[in-house]
Design a protein around this nucleic acid. Structure first.
Lengths: 259, 259
DNA sequence: CGCCTTTATAGTCAGAGTGACCATTAAGGG
DNA sequence: CCCTTAATGGTCACTCTGACTATAAAGGCG
């Protein structure tokens, strides 16, 4: 890998915060590829699942990997992430446009891809339990895989997925994000299961209920509606996500346990 | 801008999560430049300051900008950020190696730099009140500018700086990060000033003291030492940063006020 | 010197929030 | 009919916090 280009700029103020000489040729140095990777989570049957695709070619042929792809020349990373998400899940664009998508962080270790220098902006998405994703027209075939059962992931995707899970767990504490995992109408039991699944701990039912209902704007009751949850037990009232986005005070996970 | 390369890969599985054909030519498409930008904060005389450099050339000649520069071909973004920080501040490498540096987020809007496509990974650093930075050998001349008094910043650096400030404020709530703004030995009054400065609110002295001392590992008293703080008043005991990194339960800013 | 201001430090008190419980209601299953 | 299960309603003690008062120890000033 030849180190020309950027280094040639060192004589003046550098970078976009500095200056690029007029005659600067964008093709003169070893380029960086910029991609997005997606950590898409859902809660399914009491277990956290991530959306993964099976790799067909080397490197890491046969391994699971995060969905993702190149950022196109006229596209922001966020737009690229939304486009890839729509392609991989086969969901209609308007549904994808409404999903919670959040930038996680950027992974830039020089050797994270053995083929060339790839800098990847990772995004985290939380979705309700969707119908099985349709492969996005091309060879890509995305599936929901229970967290921790995927074997070795390609590239540094295991790191990304672990970081994303930790971030989601932390955000549940001080935001109303948990409703993103739920369908439009849900019971408090389902909402509690989201917390229990992501945190890996059991929560006290009455206390959870008290906390959620005491937070203005977290959830709004759907008048008169109720639903049986697990086939057994008293039917539960239905709620919708409210307008609030932050939890004050936060709902802390018990005893700082990480999983 | 020619949109070849990435688009040519669409036929197969895409991106580094997909596959790059063997004959793929890294120079065949419009390249992305990858840079780092630094939001370096300090607390000085009761006001939050950011480290900025004055731009000499167009675009944005004469405006203040964040320090930063290219990520070199064999360098991670974090390494680039640390190298740039050392160059701009003129601090010895071992000091820079010990500073708190945290990835903020990546800015990738296609037109954020009018000259070419630049994707920038932003980092936030918190430092104690350092001696005036020496310009880093080159033309760059970094200065501490009080937050909000810089006028228009170059590129999207005002957004980055605002995001960084918000992130720092939030992190003070649930981490022990505030000690990064302080010299090795500090008084509780100085630590409280960090919170007051970043949050823009006054805090109750006794309550702040109680909270900090009740958190195990946040600070450790320096036996027998004390110092006069503002010239007036009772001398204050000195403390060092403790081993703790997280605050459980958090120290929430009053009334969810953002500034 | 006494008196002011300033800051650190010690303590009090009421209310909010939380964890650990117990009790009741309403469903399905044998 | 009685079991299990889950939702819901409620209690109680403890912790944490915000508001506040009081004391200690410095410098400045007449």
């Amino acid at each position: 890998m030849t180190a020309v280009g950027p280094r040639a700029l060192e004589g003046g103020a550098r970078g976009p915060a500095g200056n690029v000489p007029e005659g600067y040729d964008p093709h003169a140095f070893e380029p960086f590829a910029v991609t997005v990777d997606l950590a898409v989570f859902t809660v399914r049957g009491g277990a956290l699942h991530a959306l993964l695709i099976r790799r067909g070619q080397e490197p890491y042929a046969g391994a699971w990997a995060l969905p993702g792809g190149f950022v196109l020349p006229r596209e922001s990373a966020e737009l690229a992430a939304r486009r890839e998400l729509a392609e991989e899940t086969g969901l209609p664009d308007d549904v994808v446009a409404g999903l919670h998508l959040e930038q996680l962080r950027t992974y830039s270790e020089p050797d994270r891809d053995p083929r060339m220098r790839v800098v990847s902006v990772a995004y985290t998405a939380l979705v309700p339990d969707l119908p099985e994703p349709r492969g996005g027209g091309d060879a890509a075939h995305a599936e929901w895989i229970a967290f921790g059962t995927s074997g070795q992931l390609a590239f540094d995707h295991a790191d990304i997925l672990a970081d994303a899970r930790e971030r989601v767990g932390a955000k549940l504490e001080y935001t109303c994000l948990a409703t993103s995992f739920c369908p439009p109408e849900f019971t408090l039991g389902e909402l509690r299961q989201v917390y229990e699944t992501v945190w890996g701990t059991a929560l006290d039912r009455p206390n959870f209920r008290r906390k959620v209902l005491a937070t203005p704007g977290f959830v709004e009751q759907v008048a008169g509606a109720s639903r049986l949850t697990g086939g057994r037990g008293k039917p539960a009232a239905l709620y919708r996500a409210g307008p609030a986005t932050a939890l004050h005070p936060p709902l802390l996970r018990p005893e700082g346990r990480q999983s």
